[in-house]
Computed example of a mutant assay.
Amino acid sequence: MPLMLPSALDSPRNITGVAQRLLAALRGAGDLPPVRSAVLAVVDGLGAIPLRAHAGHARTLSAAMTKKDAGGAVFPTTTAAALTSLLTGTAPGAHGMVGYRVRDPHRDVLVNQLTDWDAAGIDPLSWQASPTVFEQAAASGHPTFAIGSSGHARSGFSRATLRGAEFVAAASAAERVAQALHLAEAHEGALVYCYLPDIDKAGHKHGIDSAEWVAALEDIDAVLAQRVPDDVGMLVTADHGMVDVPHHRQLVLDSAGGWHDGIRHIGGEPRMLHVYTEPDADQSALLERWRRDLDGYADVVSRTEAVDAGLFGAGVTEAALSRIGDLLAIARSNHALYDAEAEDQRGRGMIGQHGALTPEEWRVPLIRMGAFAR
């Protein structure tokens, strides 16, 4: 079993530790300086390595970022799993959001964990049962706020991850950060979450080496240059990073190649597939075949191997286990794997992608600003 996590999920320098670090700072304890209020700014898709590579276009963040201001994400390095880990302080094996598209074992269908909640009839409170950081903070008497797009206010994903917070809608990144800092200053003891998706969107569409991605980075950097009020700490991080996948690095899994033989569903996303086999399939033979045929493209492991290696965290619940693929295909280098029979083929147009275990996807910034700054 060659795969190992780049760093422990229970490390304070992992995104699973961010929630407790912020709560501790509000209590005047922990490794962060005590603060009057705390802001968690999440820049979706901003890896630590691409940020450092483009330091000249992010002078505010680069100036605030020391060599120690980076940490690890979770597996898979995808928004549904990683944002939930950030906002619950638990690994995917505990909160159950184990990928982008996973199987609902009760109905035997694939579910997009960002968008399919209502259409699939999934209850966010039972599907994702771990207490959020907002519920934990509110139980201790702290005001809690989550700032994002108005379209996300009542989404299933928001109900799964933001419950306990008062949702505040703001259109632009500048408005969101300004609102976050205002709320932190106006409400003593507040915990404020601010979600910034612009860089992730630019990376998916244009790639991280594009002028559009650099422009998005410059915009976010300027937004985060706003003055942080006295006694307010701001932690800037991300859910995952990203790699560019050129067209010649794409592998299409079609029926002509026998990729669907013995396979019931292919979920996940192009850089980390959850592969669900037919009930009567010979899983050992399929595992051997996928490993052989994807040699050089991806590492293929069984569900048992992935869980035993700790990829989903130390404790994997029965609910999470039932959603993990029988096989996992984890892309190497900058490859991507596409299911030719998937209903939604929009992902094949994406340049920037994530989900696997490269340092570019795994390493994220943990930048301390305002009263948190060293």
Rank of each mutant, 00 (worst) to 15 (best):
T66N: 02
S85D: 05
D69T: 03
T90R: 09
A129E: 03
W117S: 07
A70Q: 15
I122K: 08
R107M: 09
A73D: 08
L125E: 10
D118I: 01
Y100Q: 05
A94C: 12
G71P: 10
T132N: 12
T132V: 04
I122Y: 10
S126K: 01
P124S: 08
P124Y: 01
V74D: 02
L83K: 14
Y100V: 03
S130W: 13
L125C: 13
I122M: 14
A70V: 12
L87A: 00
Y100H: 14
L125S: 14
D123R: 07
N112G: 07
L86G: 00
G89H: 09
A82D: 04
S130Y: 07
A119D: 12
T78M: 05
T84G: 01
L87C: 02
A94H: 13
D69C: 05
V102G: 00
L110Q: 08
T88H: 10
D108E: 14
I122V: 15
R107Q: 13
V102L: 15
R103N: 03
L114R: 12
A70R: 13
A129G: 09
T90D: 09
P105Y: 11
R103H: 01
G93P: 06
T78Q: 06
T77N: 02
N112V: 09
P124A: 08
Y100P: 10
D116E: 11
T77K: 03
I122E: 13
S126D: 13
A129N: 04
G93E: 01
L125Q: 11
T84N: 02
M97R: 03
V74W: 15
T77I: 11
G89P: 06
